[in-house]
Computed example of a mutant assay.
Amino acid sequence: MSITLSTDTVPAAQQLDYWTEAICGVFMHLDVEPPQDGRQGFDGRIVQHAEGKLDLAEVLVEGHAVLRTNRQLHRDSEDSFFVMVQRDGESWIEQDGREGWMRKGEFVLLDGGRSYTMRFPHRIHHEVLKVPGNVLRASIRDPQRFTSCPISGASGAGRIFLGVLETLHDTAGDLDHGSAAGVADALVDLLSATIGTMSQAHVKVPSHLEQYHRHRVQALVQERMFDPELSIDSVAAAVKLSPRYLHRLFEDEKLTLSGWIWHERLEAARRALLSPAAANRSLTDIAYAVGFKDPAHFSRMFKATYGSSPRAFRLEIATNQSA
């Protein structure tokens, strides 16, 4: 079954709301940040092919941003992964403390069960393959190790994977239920083969006990992320583990546990500064709201991370919006 959802059929003043409902219906609940130029109207189109186990969508849309936030995580509990293929344009993607640009001809894996951010500075063309979490985990152990890591489709298994997707895009409407199931299984096998070539696939995988403790710690930190009293010692006490063991649990991650906490707080502050709804909130209020005890410390960390102070960042956003 194929469906097409397009803002072309909607009045300009309602197009952004329509788009938000469309992507939430096709994928999962997401927050949408509109383009920063302030103009009315929004241009986007989704074509979804869904037949049994096969769920493939094509997205063509102008620049904007989507966020899978903690608030949205609580609205649905669907366990799915998404393979995002960059057919045209470029995307900035962040999940699990890993961030970077995805260019044309690359693809990334995203976990719909955890928060992430995608920003598109200009118009993009994506293909999106949705894979149930239990299916992917049966083929790839701990697939969250590979999220937000751009994978090249220029050669090897990656090239074959993208080639099959491109062919499928043209023929998906002709597949019956049984054929679609076979193609879906083959795609997961190809994806597994491609991911197996990544350096992360050869890193020591934590034991089941270590994974259990990591999930406990991550759940606790997500719940208390903006609590100013949150610290490694308080987390360790809450989960009844030593601070030293906590550090060891996360030693293979790109960010330490403490670094991840500060990163998430700074990202929340940056989103607040970008939001027109928070234009009248003071910088001190934003700093306290995301877990900082000292506004000066917030300002120093923000500048060190993003290259400008919160005040200068907000001024630049306001200038761009009024230009």
Results as ranks from 00 to 15, higher is better:
Ser2Ile: 14
Ser6His: 07
Thr7Met: 08
Asp8Asn: 12
Val10Asn: 05
Asp17His: 13
Glu21Thr: 03
Glu21Met: 06
Val26Asp: 06
Val26Trp: 11
Phe27Gly: 01
Phe27Ser: 01
Phe27Met: 12
Met28Cys: 14
Gln36Val: 15
Gly38Tyr: 14
Gly38Gln: 09
Ile46Glu: 07
Ile46Gly: 03
Ala50Trp: 05
Val59Trp: 09
Val61Phe: 11
Asn70Asp: 13
Leu73Cys: 02
Leu73Gln: 09
His74Gln: 15
Asp76Pro: 03
Glu78Arg: 01
Asp79Ala: 14
Asp79Glu: 14
Ser80Glu: 11
Phe81Thr: 02
Phe82Gln: 00
Gln86Asp: 08
Arg87His: 06
Trp92Leu: 12
Trp92Glu: 15
Trp101His: 08
Lys104Gln: 10
Glu106Gln: 14
Leu109Phe: 02
Phe120Ser: 12
His125Asp: 04
His126Trp: 11
Leu129Thr: 11
Val131Glu: 00
Val135Tyr: 03
Ala138Cys: 01
Ile140Phe: 09
Arg141Asp: 14
Pro143Thr: 07
Phe146Lys: 05
Cys149Leu: 14
Arg159Tyr: 06
Ile160Gly: 03
Val164Met: 10
Gly173Pro: 05
Gly173Gln: 12
Asp174His: 08
Asp176His: 01
Leu190Cys: 11
Leu191Ser: 06
Ser192Ile: 03
Ile195Asp: 00
Ile195Val: 15
Ser199Lys: 13
Gln200Ser: 12
Arg214Met: 08
Arg214Asp: 03
Ala219Glu: 15
Leu220Lys: 01
Gln222Tyr: 02
Pro228Cys: 07
Ser231Asp: 03
Ser234Cys: 10
Ala236Trp: 02
Lys240Met: 11
Ser242Leu: 03
Pro243Lys: 08
Phe250Gln: 06
Glu253Ala: 14
Ser258Met: 06
Ile261Arg: 10
Glu267Gly: 00
Leu274Val: 01
Ala278Met: 11
Ala279Lys: 11
Asn280Ile: 02
Asn280Thr: 12
Asp285Ser: 15
Ala287Arg: 08
Ala287Phe: 02
Tyr288Trp: 13
Gly291Glu: 13
Phe292Asp: 04
His297Met: 09
Phe298Lys: 04
Ser299Phe: 07
Lys303Arg: 13
Ala304Pro: 03
Ala304Asp: 15
Gly307Pro: 02
Gly307Glu: 07
Ser308Met: 15
Ser308Arg: 10
Ala312Met: 12
Leu315Ile: 12
Ala318Lys: 15
Ala323Tyr: 00
